[in-house]
Design a protein around this nucleic acid. Structure first.
Lengths: 336, 336
DNA sequence: TAACTTAGATTAATCGAATAACCGGCGCCG
DNA sequence: CGGCGCCGGTTATTCGATTAATCTAAGTTA
């Protein structure tokens, strides 16, 4: 039995059934652009037939004719996205849909540069939103030349000046400030900061570190960075190092997850937390609530998704650069 | 300055520049379907000009003409996807790309049923892969009528018999078996199992519970379920309840994250883990390595992504039903 | 009654790529 | 010398939707 794949209904099908031309049907279904005169009777008939046939407009055909798509292509980072990113994407998807756009995610590891840009460009999205490590200069060029707006995630506005590339950032330095202020206020003088060794995370880690330093050193507290991998062994190594060189009073653990691993290693070494070493994470994930002691953390709160969506869509439509940084740090105290 | 949005190069542009017709260009760039005779010299010229102009085929135009897309639309669940799901999607994206398909994710909460199906169908994807709670019967119908293959995630093969809908499942019962076997073998007789109260997770929780029960009761061990929300308070409530009714010997915590919250509550109540109550999670996330004691867990190992991709693509191309369940449970012992 | 308006449509071109059908010229063979 | 085959292409149509331009019949006005 060769199953004949059903052919979706088209404008022509509707037109034939109603007994009018496809033009009329198109006008009706697009709510008659100004100046068109179509009596309510016709409109009703067209709409009911469209419904009956389960008509769904063919996005490709439409975009081919109009020369633009309603697609916003979000290229995912290699790293696993936490709840913060997931929530952002979900919210944004909803918001841009209200503005007539469709946000989709596309993610394949090790797919970057010109080759990747070409495959993104093939979909002719209105914009590509991609993490910095996926975008090369040549790749960005391919997109720009195809008339596609580019958002670089994790690229500072200064870096993208004059390139026509918009940016979307998290204020990691501000996050560092918030963590630093908390620790300094509570009298800690010898503060350590974890910095992930992975390429992508290292950049963010260093920015958080910078923010922490700015606040701490201003108040006469010392900050020492410690590189760490995303493994329990690496956490143990860090702690072992400290046991030799002297334990810090407090640790800013980059994020909740790195902090969690470190906490395990500290407890294994018999270090009392937070009495001997205080620990601050970031992102306010549920991990904070699983650990004992619970983790003090810095949550990044996102401004309304609707507002972010409007900024993005505005930039896309005018093809003007914008630089967004919609998250602000908020301290969540859990350890004394 | 009104920036004229650059127009991407088309077949016509290449044809004009090379001095041949668009047909020739098309044949060359698609590697001359059998029977076509085009000398190497022409091929080379066409290809070099295409390259020079940065030509990227217009996916919409192509799909309009061919009547099919290379799109596989993965509709994301409302819940935050863990590393397991993320890894699956990344791997699959890569694998299907090798087979000429493009997997994209689309996620907006509270977007389900017929309305959602219509918006998915608009893209004319070759297939829609969606979690069960996004698919209504009517919605599935819209897709099937549009000639789109449907994969229901989390729907048992029996449920989808005769509907033409393929399924993609995780063997939660098997996971329960593995956890149960471990606990029974270690002599635990009074086993509790957490079951999430959230709609979507409850289904999986109950399947895991069923598997656990099958093994345990076969060996004369008792299993008592305990409903829990994804909050620290709820975990505390569960523990409080047990303190009244009697603590179990062991707990299967649904997954690592629920187990983590429960562990916190147990420790708060002064219960020694694993001496008084043993705890088993699931998914083998890094959370297991942060907690003290570390968590014994059941990891779901996925068979090769290439193989899964082939099954999916095969079903899509033939429009035949398949029922996939590519994960198998593996115990990871960490608590004695 | 002729000229003009207007409501309510229709016609036809177009977007970019794929592809079936066709075509002119050259060489070879009987 | 006529016919056949093959080489290296070209022409023209098609996919589904949009939209500017046009058309028709009825009604209005002078």
């Amino acid at each position: 039995m060769t199953s004949i794949r059903p052919r979706p209904a088209t404008l022509t099908d509707i037109a034939r059934k109603v007994g009018v031309s496809t033009a009329t049907v198109s006008y009706v279904l697009n709510d008659a652009p100004a100046g068109r005169r179509i009596p309510e009777a016709t409109r009703t008939r067209v709409r009911s037939v469209a419904d009956e046939l389960g008509y769904v407009p063919h996005a490709s055909a439409r975009s081919l004719r109009k020369g633009t798509t309603d697609l916003l292509l979000h290229v995912q980072a290699d790293i696993v996205q936490g709840p913060l990113a997931a929530d952002f994407v979900h919210g944004l998807t909803q918001s841009v849909r209200g503005l007539g756009y469709t946000l989709v995610q596309y993610g394949a590891e090790r797919h970057r540069g010109v080759k990747a840009a070409r495959s993104w460009a093939g979909m002719r999205p209105a914009a590509v939103i991609a993490p910095r490590d996926r975008l090369t200069e040549a790749g960005t060029d391919v997109l720009r030349k195809a008339g596609i707006h580019v958002f670089a995630v994790g690229v500072a506005p200064e870096e993208s000046a004059g390139t026509g590339v918009s940016t979307l950032n998290m204020d990691h330095r501000g996050l560092g400030h918030t963590a630093g202020r908390h620790l300094v206020e509570r009298g800690y003088q010898d503060i350590a900061a974890l910095v992930p060794r992975t390429q992508l995370l290292a950049r963010m880690g260093n920015e958080r570190l910078t923010g922490l330093k700015e606040v701490a050193e201003d108040q006469g507290a010392a900050v020492r960075p410690a590189e760490m991998d995303w493994t329990p062994d690496s956490a143990a190594d860090v702690v072992a190092g400290w046991l030799e060189d002297g334990l810090p009073d407090a640790v800013f653990g980059y994020n909740d997850e790195f902090s969690g691993l470190l906490l395990g290693a500290l407890l294994d070494a018999g270090v009392r937390v937070p009495e001997r070493v205080a620990l601050v994470g970031a992102d306010d994930t549920m991990v904070c609530r699983m650990l004992r002691p619970e983790l003090t953390t810095v949550r990044m709160e996102c401004q309304g998704h609707d507002e972010v969506a409007r900024s993005i869509v505005g930039a896309v439509q005018e093809d003007t650069q914008v630089h967004l940084s919609p998250w602000s740090p908020v301290l969540v105290r859990r350890q004394t």
